[in-house]
Amino acid sequence: MRGPTIIKAEDDKTRQLNKNTLMAFSGEAGDTVQFAEFIQANVQLYSMRNDTELSPAAVANFVRGELARSLRSRSPYTVNLLLGGMDPTTEQPHLYWIDYLASLAPVPYAAHGYAQYYCLSLLDKHHNPNIDLEQGMKLLGMCTDELKRRLPIDYKGVLVKIITKDGVKEVDFDNDKIVRSA
């Protein structure tokens, strides 16, 4: 977006950091991609030098550290992040919520921006720690339906990527479904 104009409808606002971690970002236009790719480069550099993948927890704390350092600099990055990943050793899924102040919180589900007000209550009600992928996708569908129903602006759909122990893959998501406002 640039003011009220849509520049691109299908912009990928995620970056894969290593085999099993993915970072989604929102915030100030120039900052987001710049910061995400800086992180991506450094995490990949670590993987090459040490011939090992950082765990999602390690990546999350690295990202937080860099954002916290930037926060107290002359020109801080204004970037909100969601960081998801599978721990390669324990095969446990992790999700981290990081805001532009570099607050880090491990959470079972999260959102940034207006989506928080529309989706968190749905997730509070329907999420439980044992849901499988199918149920998860259904829950995501409920969230996007709600955004279509209640957000005053057309946000042009979502891009969905799932992270498993086998890596990150993009999945098809029906963005053309018509949801009438209540």
Binding site: N61, R64, G65, A68, L71, L101, A102, S103, L104
Partner: peptide, 11 residues
């Protein structure tokens, strides 16, 4: 206090 500094100081 500010959560980011709770993180920073604890680290």
């Amino acid at each position: 206090g500010l959560a980011t500094d709770v993180n920073t100081v604890s680290d």
